[in-house]
């Protein structure tokens, strides 16, 4: 089982997204005429010792690249999501809803939120694919 977060976990999530018919179908227009890449900043706590960055390049319902980064670097993603490891962990486990986290402002998302509203089904499918495989977690 992959440890969340790790490159092995990124590879599993990428496969899960690309093999999920809901992601492929609902995301077919995602990122075609706007930058649809995400940078996740996972802040420490609940077993995570330092801030981790995860970059996901997604276009047309397919994840082209998903990798851990040492820092934000020069990436200027379409969507920048910040949240604590303690808040991301229940989403990855499938216990909490990612969109609820956005509405509650547990996760701060910067980017064209209108695109998120217009593609809410895709965002939900993408978030559901996170919990479609088993993982191990830090601090447990």
């Amino acid at each position: 089982m992959a440890i969340y977060p790790s490159q092995e976990w990124c590879d599993e999530w990428k496969d899960a997204m690309n093999n999920d018919p809901a992601c492929v179908e609902t995301g077919k227009n995602w990122g075609l005429d706007f930058p649809g890449d995400f940078l996740f900043e996972i802040t420490p706590g609940s077993g995570l010792d330092k801030t981790h960055y995860m970059y996901a390049d997604i276009k047309g319902g397919k994840c082209l690249e998903l990798k851990m980064l040492d820092s934000q670097g020069d990436k200027k993603p379409g969507f920048y999501v910040t949240g604590s490891y303690g808040d991301f962990k229940p989403v990855v486990k499938g216990e909490k809803d990612f969109i609820e986290g956005i509405v509650r402002a547990l996760f701060i998302m910067k980017g064209d939120m209108g695109k998120i509203m217009r593609n809410a089904k895709y965002i939900r499918a993408m978030a559901a694919s996170i919990s479609s495989f088993k993982n191990e977690y830090l601090g447990e």
């Binding site: 956005i102 509405v103 509650r104 402002a105 547990l106 996760f107 998302m109 939120m113 209108g114 509203m117």
Partner: peptide, 14 residues
């Protein structure tokens, strides 16, 4: 703003 407001803001701005 809470997350709901932030989600709707860009549509309102357009």
């Amino acid at each position: 703003l809470n997350g709901l407001g932030a989600s709707l803001l860009s549509i309102m701005e357009q």
